[in-house]
Design a protein around this nucleic acid. Sequence first.
DNA 1: CATGTTCATCGCATTTCACCTATTAATTCG
DNA 2: CGAATTAATAGGTGAAATGCGATGAACATG
Lengths: 106, 106
Amino acid sequence: MQDDDIANIMRALGHPVRLNILRFLASQQQRECCCGDVTESLPLAQSTVSQHIKVLLDAGLIERKPHGTRNRYMIRHDRLAEIGTAFGGLLTGLNFQAPHKEAEPA
Amino acid sequence: MQDDDIANIMRALGHPVRLNILRFLASQQQRECCCGDVTESLPLAQSTVSQHIKVLLDAGLIERKPHGTRNRYMIRHDRLAEIGTAFGGLLTGLNFQAPHKEAEPA
DNA sequence: CATGTTCATCGCATTTCACCTATTAATTCG
DNA sequence: CGAATTAATAGGTGAAATGCGATGAACATG
């Protein structure tokens, strides 16, 4: 995964509302979960929520499934796994460069 | 760690240039590493780099140590560990069962 | 077909971000 | 002290993000 991809994903995660949306989706996994449900759980207008959902979609963090007149949203666990790996790699890379001097444990 | 903190950190990590700066600092850990060094490694003006550094400082990802007329910068490994834990917690909360191990400094 | 529901998208206003040049503060040194 | 060095900050500009209300497409149903 490229720096640009990681940066994009981090930016998508860099907003409290979007974190809330993800958590909400996670908590409602097995039910119908459409834009309206998410909107109800937040003090924001429907259009605003829809925008945030789009950001998460574009970052590949969630997926959309049309379902009648509604859209059902769900977390993309496959992508989360990738992201976890990439992020772990990033942190490891940032930690790795001090072979003789280690971060001292308290 | 609160959602706002996580979001702040994610936003700080959500820019390729800042990822580059972190990597550069990681690779130069044992040497003097001041703003000028970072600037030389990037196609950006000194003031722009200084601003990015400020974002990383505010997010607690790096620290500053005045050193003569220069400022020496270094990665805050303690914070990276915290962030790794928080991020892991976030992913777990989203129902992601990590099949890989987390990046932590020993 | 007409009506109601859902929600993405389109303006629009405001704020924040990213970049620059120029300046200023702090420090070293002749 | 004056000159040089380093880097933070001030100020300006254009782009992007964030929020809203309004509109319209897609679908279900009477």
